[in-house]
Nucleic acid binder design. Structure first.
Lengths: 203, 203
DNA sequence: TAATATATGTCAGTCGATGACAGATGACAA
DNA sequence: TTGTCATCTGTCATCGACTGACATATATTA
């Protein structure tokens, strides 16, 4: 990897960290792009070359996670029930964070706090995730041998899976201390969902 | 009702209609608030006195619908299974539209087309609905006699219900011609959801 | 080292959104 | 009817997110 790429990755992370810290210090809304850029000695214009929008900072892990979900889903055996596959995809997102560098998991935990304090940002992640949700539905439809434009159950399966994810993440309770605690909550939520669903419903 | 209020309601609807038509003609993003205001001979500043944001236009029915959901939910018998109550709340939203004036249902159908062409706006509705979803969860928690801050199942119930709503609304298929067709789709989706869930799961 | 490719800063400009103030208009009592 | 009051509206100024264009600086490669 050349110097150029290393430098880019460095500023990318610097911007990310500066932004997250500012969000936690003074709130998301009252933090301007100018401040973030200033904190890492970069022009505001450059900020937008690394992140397409201010929101993009908050949705960083979300974007990343959806990519992982897609890959995991495609790697699961084709004859596995779709919801089971999706559940594994959800787990994969968190495993990825847990297996990452300490700095990365720290970013994840901090971002989670930002999302907690500004619930409306959670919706934005859904907004951005629309496209990925469609791709997940396409994949599930292919596995079920149906037309994604016609089959309601396919969309319901994906929607339920995403709901499970959100509940596992957002469920208030006390502040989680590490990623493993969040892993535990997601696992519990997945089990709860599987307990709530009729066996074979997604076949 | 005084002249003043009538006038306000009139401009409110005028702005709404002008905006919707412009969105359908030239797309959501390329329509400016200035254009909308100009189309009804009103200053841009006044636009923001009727609608808090450009998004607000699109989410108009959504806001309205969530209010109805809450009221319906509260009116359902306390011993009814929560998901059943929520399903009735979903139906109530559409009944309200169907029982409204023809002009109103037209607006509804047009707005639905706007949402279809700009999927990211669907996410915005979730963003705006975060607060209402919390209130729904509070109500469900009260009925189940649990603490909303502790009980995962409560949040899962609400999340599943909202998913059902979204799938019923957004499921592609062919363009619906009237509200009754959408009512049918929602009903089918609700039945599908109830078929997918284990009996008594939400008790 | 020269030539090329890419990253960054500066500048100008658009658009959404908000506060402040002044003028216009409906509501209401005498 | 008239005058007062509350409310609505337009104008102006301003902020902040975001984008395109262009020039400059910094890697990369031959």
């Amino acid at each position: 990897m050349g110097l150029r790429e290393r430098k880019k990755e460095k500023t990318r992370l610097a911007i990310l960290d500066a932004a997250i810290d500012l969000f936690l210090e003074q709130g998301y809304d009252s933090t301007t792009v100018e401040q973030i850029a200033g904190a890492v000695d970069v022009s505001p214009r450059t900020f937008f070359r690394y992140f397409t929008s201010k929101d993009h900072i908050v949705l960083w892990f979300h974007d990343q996670g959806e990519e992982i979900m897609l890959e995991t889903l495609q790697a699961r055996p084709a004859d596995e029930p779709p919801f089971t596959s999706l559940a594994h995809a959800l787990r994969a997102v968190l495993s990825n964070v847990a297996d990452s560098t300490p700095a990365d998991t720290q970013r994840f935990l901090k971002l989670r706090r930002v999302l907690e304090e500004h619930p409306h940002l959670v919706g934005l992640s859904v907004a951005r995730g629309t496209e990925t949700e469609r791709r997940l539905a396409d994949e599930v439809a292919a596995r079920r041998g149906v037309d994604p434009a016609q089959d309601r159950l396919t969309h319901l399966i994906v929607a339920f899976a995403m709901s499970t994810m959100r509940v596992g993440f957002d469920c208030p309770q006390s502040e989680p201390h590490d990623v493993r605690e969040i892993v535990g909550r997601l696992e519990a939520t997945i089990q709860l969902a599987e307990l709530s669903l009729r066996p074979g419903w997604d076949a």
